[in-house]
Amino acid sequence: MLPDIATIEENFAFIDDWEERYRYVIELGRMLPPADAALHAEANRVHGCASQVWLEMAVEEAGGTPVLRLRGDSDAHIVRGLVALMVALFDGRTPREAAETDAFALYTRLGLAEHLTPQRSNGVRAMADRIHRDATALAA
């Protein structure tokens, strides 16, 4: 099961070696539930990523409050881990909270922004923009 975002950030703080951090990101990707064929629909594909990435956002009532349920997948191990970070950051938030969250700031805090290739950084930004756009529409 994927840890919450606070736990992930705490774990990153204890890992000094970048190779180990990359392995941890890949491990997070392995914790995502297996994707079904419906997730891989063209409507869920995130454009702007070098690897194939799919994100699906739904709203579910939790205690009378609408919260987001985010699922994702990628065909690349490290990118699947980056998708897992997005899921950990946004799953269970209200649409308004998600719309007000700067997802790319997480990657900066974790130090990933400076260690990802420009293509991967563009892909992270594309995922963040997609989630922000969808959450903003749901919050309206």
Rank of each mutant, 00 (worst) to 15 (best):
Q119E: 13
E56W: 11
A105Y: 02
C49H: 03
A58V: 02
T108A: 15
N122V: 04
V46D: 06
L2R: 01
W18E: 05
A43I: 15
D36H: 13
A6F: 02
T136L: 14
F104M: 14
R96T: 07
M31W: 08
L89Q: 04
V59A: 15
M86V: 11
G111T: 07
A76H: 10
I15T: 05
A99F: 07
E100C: 08
P3M: 03
D36I: 12
L32P: 00
G29R: 04
P34Q: 10
F104K: 11
M127R: 07
R109M: 07
R45D: 06
Y22M: 03
M31H: 11
L85N: 02
R125L: 10
G81C: 06
M127S: 02
L138E: 11
D129L: 12
P33E: 13
H132A: 15
L70M: 12
G63T: 08
V124E: 06
G123N: 01
F104E: 15
A98E: 00
V53D: 05
D16E: 11
P34M: 05
T7K: 02
R45M: 14
C49I: 08
G63C: 09
L82R: 10
M1P: 14
E19N: 13
E10L: 02
S74K: 10
A84V: 04
A76M: 05
L85Q: 07
Q52H: 14
H40C: 12
I131T: 04
L89Y: 02
V25P: 07
G123L: 08
V124W: 12
G63W: 06
A137I: 11
L106Q: 00
I8T: 07
A113W: 04
M57E: 11
M86E: 09
P118N: 10
V83D: 01
D91L: 04
P95Q: 05
A62K: 14
W18F: 09
R133C: 10
E19G: 14
A128P: 06
L2T: 03
Q119N: 14
R133N: 10
R120D: 00
S74E: 07
R30S: 13
R109E: 06
E97F: 03
M57Y: 03
A41Q: 14
P95I: 01
L112V: 06
L138M: 13
A41R: 11
Y22F: 12
F104P: 00
M127C: 05
S51R: 11
A103C: 09
E42D: 15
E61F: 07
G81L: 06
